[in-house]
């Protein structure tokens, strides 16, 4: 029971990371597409300005919780996904550095260099997260000793690549809506248009991903055993449809919330299919790290549960407060501030 609660919390932390860091990764992917000049580029950086750092901590929290609650899953997951994980971390390093360093030197070449880097690493991070999680849904070639018998290329299989495309599109949609919230004028108009443009692609990818999931993975076994779980993909679809309706009505915050719901349900869709597996072995069912054989001792799980139940709501409370504090759109006037990116 304790293990199952932790499994749900584990999935929730990853979902929080996707929802929160997802939009600033998406905004980064849109940088060369939407910004037409220097001040628009700066508006885009500042739209994610006060948020990206706090958002990224959800990755640390998700990683830390994987380590604390499921040390064996943590060990196998990150040693098997060695190359993609390190690539992701390097991408996140350059993402952070491009935010901070770009504005520090007023030289065109310096700034366009960082713009290029910013775009590439955001793109790479979105795709890598998708590839990694799709492969986790599908199962990876690990043996009972936790040794990975594949390569980076073997992770780029059909389903893995579909996952990469899916996550990329999901974060771009999420980011476009965020940008629409945080900007006004031409940039906002273009952000909304982008969201409308991406939406049918997202819908198509969702259908394709569900079909590929049926073909390439075993996730639906849990759904057939417990049909109530079908609520998750249905809710994901509902969230996505709501995004379009709310965008039509111009209710941007609500549309962003629906997009968040979509991401949450997509994460839980995959994770519910994996249960009780955490690192599913494609070589040998006995080598699968499950919630039960991979969990920490009951004492650790209890202590960590107390920590999580106290701290996560506190964190959510003060992060909500900062979102409200910085909720107003970034204007050209704000760019004159000495502290703006």
């Amino acid at each position: 029971m304790l293990e199952t609660i932790w499994f749900i919390l584990w999935a929730l932390l990853w979902a929080m990371f996707f929802i929160l860091d997802g939009f600033d990764l998406g905004v980064g992917c849109l940088l060369p597409v939407l910004a037409r000049d220097e001040s628009e580029r700066r508006l885009m950086y500042n739209a994610a300005g006060p948020f990206w750092d706090g958002n990224e901590v959800w990755l640390i929290a998700a990683g830390g919780v994987t380590f604390a609650a499921f040390p064996k899953a943590y060990a196998v997951m990150f040693s098997a996904l060695y190359a993609p994980l390190l690539l992701l971390l390097f991408a996140l390093i350059f993402r952070a550095v491009s935010f901070e360093f770009r504005s520090k030197v007023a030289h065109v070449a310096w700034r366009s260099l960082w713009d290029g880097i910013h775009f590439c690493v955001n793109l790479a991070a979105c795709i890598l997260l998708g590839v990694a999680f799709a492969n986790l849904f599908k199962g990876i070639a690990v043996d009972a000793q936790g040794v990975f018998h594949g390569t980076l290329l073997s992770l780029l299989n059909t389903y893995g690549l579909a996952g990469g495309a899916f996550f990329l599109c999901m974060f771009i949609l999420h980011g476009a809506i965020w940008l629409a919230i945080k900007t006004r004028g031409n940039l906002q108009t273009r952000a909304v248009a982008t969201a409308f443009f991406v939406w049918p692609i997202m819908l198509l990818l969702l259908v394709a991903f569900l079909a590929l999931t049926a073909m390439h993975t075993n996730l639906f076994a849990n759904y057939l055993a417990m049909p109530a779980l079908f609520a998750l993909p249905c809710l994901a679809l509902a969230g996505l449809i709501l995004v379009r309706i709310l965008l039509r009505e111009g209710r941007l915050w609500a549309a962003w919330g629906s997009s968040a719901l979509f991401i949450l349900c997509v994460t839980f869709f995959g994770v519910a299919g994996m249960f009780p597996g955490m690192i599913i072995s494609s070589l040998d069912a006995a080598a699968t790290v499950t919630v039960f054989n991979g969990a920490s001792s009951p004492l650790t799980l209890k202590i960590m549960l107390a920590v999580a139940l106290i701290m996560v709501p506190i964190v959510l409370a003060y992060q909500c407060w900062t979102y409200r504090l910085f909720s107003s759109p970034v204007t050209h006037e704000d760019l004159k501030d000495d502290h703006a990116y």
Binding site: V57, A69, T322
Partner: peptide
């Protein structure tokens, strides 16, 4: 040693690092 060591890192993130970054 993840049973002991991992929880300390997780507590670091939830108790302190969120606060610092935010």
């Amino acid at each position: 040693v993840g049973d002991i060591f991992g929880s300390l890192l997780a507590i670091e993130a939830t108790v302190a690092f969120f606060l610092e970054s935010t």
